[in-house]
Amino acid sequence: MKKQFVVGPVGDFPPDKCRIVDVAEVSVGIYNRQGTFFAVRNLCPHKLAPICHGTIGGTFLPSEQGEWIYGLDGYVLRCVAHAWEFDIRTGESVFMADRRRLKTYPVTIENGQLLLTMRVTSAAEGGKEGDDDASDV
């Protein structure tokens, strides 16, 4: 079942920074992209590195040789290991370099608090995240 978790006051998540928090025993990176919040699991689907310690920024878009077009600024999370890039909005590998997806969570704001929606197993309600999501590891 899905459950909402309060992760803290909006002011605790400054723009263009990543904050790593534990939600229901799951490590999650919260990104504030100019007032819009994104949450991803701090676990790279490739080789399970703590991806949120990697850089958030943009990337060079597919182009002709000799052109350098920087784009997607603020949406590309590059893993600390192997440098795979994921779009924090969708969890998809940038330009579909790989099929595997980074787990993302919906984020909402209520009364100045950041709320994160996570699926949890009923047996361990409030505890470990469930594994019934196809986009998960």
Partner: peptide, 15 residues
């Protein structure tokens, strides 16, 4: 290699 290096060789458009 391409999965890691793609932004450094953006003209390699696919695997």
């Amino acid at each position: 290699t391409w999965k890691s290096a793609r932004p450094s060789v953006p003209y390699v458009l696919k695997p």
